[in-house]
Design a protein around this nucleic acid. Structure first.
Length: 466
DNA sequence: TGAAATGTTGGGGCG
DNA sequence: ACGCCCCAACATTTC
């Protein structure tokens, strides 16, 4: 075979890339193609920061392709049309691509495979949807048995180091749009590209301090970077999920000390949750629109309260810190995601879909499956969701996971002078103190927009009816 | 990967 | 020594 298209979608990497490997093994020439799809780039769920991260990732991928004598070909438009043009221009005989699982992606890919020969290979999941099923052939809807079956599959193994082809031949005649401009300083916390992803993975698992060993305990701390912060890289496949899982498995089976496997186990479990939600979205695509379970919930959907939540002005410090972290940095600690989501759906009784959309509009790592799964979990409407009566108390969550208010002060500078005793409930400060530290509640920082105790009772009532 | 309400236990103060 | 109360600490149940 002469020429193959490597259609890149959410696998912006050369390492452990099965589509690239398959193309390289069968074709003399490879066209690495990325199609900018206006349907996705201007969708109501698109996020400026995520698009910037994607563009920066395309730049990084292009750079490593150039080191191998190749380059990235950028097109813009409807993917079916663009692929038609490319196949006509180049005479390529086959397309290699990694599957994707959202409803839109599957419709798109189905159209393409009806017209052209496509070889689907690899997966953004560790174990692709369809590969983890109950003995009756049906998908799991409960996490624990899912994870048991997942772990019973052959463990993913680290691919050989020399697996990345050192030379990729790409015809020079094919035209490409220029690489999209990356707004400067857009994602300072997340430099794009697989080199950075690999560096972070190594720092997390292999470096001297090995944060993964403490992950079981420290992952819940908002004021301490105990998480891997790899989600954006996994989202765009700058890190292969299979590669990450293999690294975690290796750590579990040969830990530096026996108690160290605990952290790696816990982290692997999070990768399994990621797979679980991809499988759920694949088997039950309607979850993007509807509750997986529970009837209709009588949401209040107050637009002003929603705006306050989005802006981080609810008057509950840990919630507001989380929401400001999201908007300012494009990322939110997972514990904070649960706290913020519980507050929106339970305390404010606002439809989880509103929160889901806001997260998608702001998260660098925003992924339809994981984000939807997380929201339905917290709302109590998902498969294997938190029970409806599990309602987070924003004050006690703050005290437990940010005991000294470091996280709160990091994102809410107006509270920087509030003493530790009051940092989680600043409305308890005396007016004298408020004046003295120049942080008047209701002026410099909002008073709580609801009474949590009453809101909790109300949520139990409303959810009880559903 | 909750939190609040309710129940139980046991030590210590005290008459 | 004993019974009684209080209440913190822990356990269990409920939402």
């Amino acid at each position: 075979m002469k020429t193959a298209i490597w259609w890149i979608r959410r696998d912006l990497r050369l390492h452990d890339n099965q589509a690239l490997t398959a193309a390289h093994e069968t074709a003399r020439h490879i066209l690495p193609v990325f199609i900018l799809d206006p349907r996705l780039l201007s969708s109501p769920y698109a996020a400026e920061k995520r698009v910037a991260f994607l563009y920066a990732g395309l730049g990084a991928l292009n750079a490593s392709l150039r080191e191998r004598g190749s380059r990235l070909i950028i097109r813009r438009g409807n993917p079916l049309n663009e692929l038609t043009h490319l196949l006509n221009e180049t005479g390529a005989q086959v397309i290699y691509a990694e599957p994707d699982y959202s409803a839109y992606a599957r419709r798109r890919d189905h159209q393409v495979e009806k017209q052209f020969p496509v070889e689907w290979t690899g997966s953004p999941a560790v174990h692709p949807p369809g590969s983890v099923l109950k003995s009756n052939g049906k998908p799991y809807t409960v996490f624990t048995p899912f994870s048991r079956a997942w772990k019973a599959l052959p463990a993913p193994r680290l691919p050989a180091k020399d697996q990345v082809p050192d030379s990729i031949s790409t015809p020079g005649t094919i035209t490409s749009l220029p690489l999209p401009d990356v707004p400067p300083e857009q994602n300072p916390d997340f430099p794009a590209g697989e080199a950075e992803a690999q560096r972070r993975l190594r720092a997390f698992i292999c470096s001297d301090d090995q944060p993964i060993n403490e992950y079981a305990i420290e992952r819940n701390r908002l004021d301490y970077s105990g998480t891997s912060m790899l989600s954006p890289y996994l989202r765009f496949g700058m890190l292969s999920a299979r590669f990450a899982a293999a690294a975690a498995s290796e750590k579990i089976h040969s830990p530096s000390s026996p108690e160290d496997s605990n952290g790696a186990e816990t982290w692997l479990n999070e990768l399994i949750w990621r797979d679980f939600y991809m499988h759920i979205l694949y088997h039950f695509p309607h979850v993007r629109r509807q509750n997986f379970k529970l009837g209709k919930i009588a949401w209040l959907n107050d637009p002003e309260q929603f705006a306050a939540w989005c802006a981080g002005r609810t008057g509950f410090p840990v919630v507001d810190a989380a929401m400001r972290q999201l908007v300012e940095s494009g990322w939110m600690h997972n514990r904070a995601r649960m706290i913020a989501a519980s507050f929106l759906t339970k305390d404010l009784l606002i439809d989880w879909r509103w929160g889901e959309r806001w997260f998608m509009q702001n998260l660098v790592d925003g992924d339809p499956a994981a984000n939807n799964g997380g929201w339905q979990w917290t709302a109590g409407t998902g498969s294997d969701a938190a029970p409806y009566f599990r309602i987070f108390n924003p004050v006690s969550q703050g005290k437990r996971h940010d005991p000294d208010g470091v996280y709160i002060r990091r994102w809410l500078p107006e509270l920087s002078r509030v003493p530790n005793e009051a940092i989680h409930e600043p409305w308890h400060m005396t007016t004298e103190l408020q004046n003295k530290i120049d942080c008047v509640i209701g002026k410099d920082y909002p008073a709580p927009i609801i009474d949590h105790t009453q809101a909790r009772q109300r949520a139990l009532q409303v959810y009880g009816n559903a």
